[in-house]
Simulated scan of single mutants.
Amino acid sequence: MPEFSPYLSPAGDRHFDGLADKFAGSLYGGLRGELRLALLDRLLPEMLDLQGQPVLEVGGGLGQLAAWLSDRGHPVTLTEPAGEMLERAAEHLGDRPVVRHRLPLQSLPAALPGPWPLVTCHAVLEWLADPRAALATLAGLLTPGGQLSLMVFNRDALRLSNVVKGNLAKALDDRLEGQGRRRRLTPISPLTHGQVVAWAEEAGLCVAQVAGVRVFHDYLRTPPEAAADRQALLELEWRYSRVDPHWRLGRYLLYTLIRPEEPAS
C-alpha cells in the first residue's frame, strides 16, 4: 500500500496546504525569486499579444502573476486548489478586481470552460501526476487563436543542477523526481522541452515562443550579493534567456502556445 501523504491529492497531485510559508520562501525568497519575477516582467510582453483580454490564471499560487496582469488592464480569473495559497493570493491582490476560485485544474472544463483568449499556467504541471493530460485540458479551454502562457520546471536543468552539486549517482540513474510525501519542494513531474513540444502538438497547439528563466543563477557556486553584481546577473539572464543553447538550461521553460484559428467553412 502506498505511503499516505497529507501533501498529495487523491489523484496523486502535489498541493500546498500547510506549506505556504515554505513555498513562498523556497520559490520566491531571495535572489532566485527576484530574478524569476523580473524576467517574467520583461519576457511576457514580448512573448504574448497582450491587449487587455480576459485571462484565466490556473494555479495562481501567491497571486503575483494575477496582480501583474490586473495592473495591466486584464480582467483576471484566478484558480488555485489550495485554500491556504488562495488566502495568500487574496492578501497580495488587495483591492484588485480579480475573481478567485478554489478549483483544481482538472475541474476547469466543467466550472470555467470559457473559451478563453488567454490562459496562464506557470509552475503547475510539474506538481501534477499526469501533466500530459493537464496540458490537453488547458488546450481545450482556449478560444481559436487563443494563447496559453505555460511555464514548467525543466528536467534537464534539474539533472545538471544535481551534477553540479555532486549528486552523480542520482543524475546517472535519472532519479530526479520528488515523491511529494514530505515537505521538500522537488517537483514530482519535471518536464523536458521535447515532452512539452510533443504534448502540445497532440493537443492541437503550436509552439510560438520559448524562453529559459534563470539560465545561469541556479548553477552558481556563490550567488552575488552586491547590488551591482545582482544587476549584472539579471542582465545576463535577460540577454541569453532566448538564445540557443542557453535557454534550454533555464530552471524553468516558458512557452507561448497558440490554438490555431479554425479554417473558414
Rank of each mutant, 00 (worst) to 15 (best):
P2Y: 00
F4A: 15
Y7L: 08
L8A: 11
S9R: 04
S9F: 01
L19C: 11
Y28P: 06
G30P: 07
L31M: 11
L35R: 05
L43V: 10
L44N: 06
L44H: 05
P45A: 11
P45Y: 12
P45I: 14
D49T: 14
V58D: 01
L62Q: 05
A66M: 00
V76F: 02
V76C: 00
T77M: 07
L78W: 06
E80P: 11
A82P: 04
G83P: 12
E84N: 09
M85P: 07
E87Y: 13
R88L: 12
H92R: 15
G94R: 13
G94K: 13
R96C: 05
V98K: 00
R100D: 08
P104W: 07
Q106M: 10
S107Y: 01
P109L: 03
P115S: 11
L125D: 02
L125R: 08
E126K: 09
L128W: 05
L128K: 07
R132Q: 14
A134C: 12
L142R: 04
T143M: 10
T143K: 06
P144A: 09
G146W: 04
G146I: 11
Q147M: 07
M151W: 01
V152G: 04
N154F: 07
A157W: 08
A157P: 11
L158H: 10
L158P: 03
L160Q: 08
V163E: 04
V164K: 14
K165G: 08
K170W: 03
R175S: 15
R175M: 13
G180F: 00
R182L: 14
R182D: 15
R184F: 00
R184Y: 03
T186G: 00
L191T: 04
T192S: 13
A198C: 03
A198H: 06
E201L: 13
E201R: 15
E201C: 09
Q209R: 15
V210E: 05
G212L: 12
T222P: 02
A227L: 13
A232V: 09
A232W: 03
L234Q: 08
W238N: 06
Y240R: 07
R242F: 05
R242S: 14
V243F: 01
P245A: 08
P245H: 10
L249N: 02
G250Q: 13
R251L: 13
Y252A: 14
L253C: 06
I258V: 14
I258K: 00
R259A: 13
R259S: 12
P263D: 04
A264M: 13
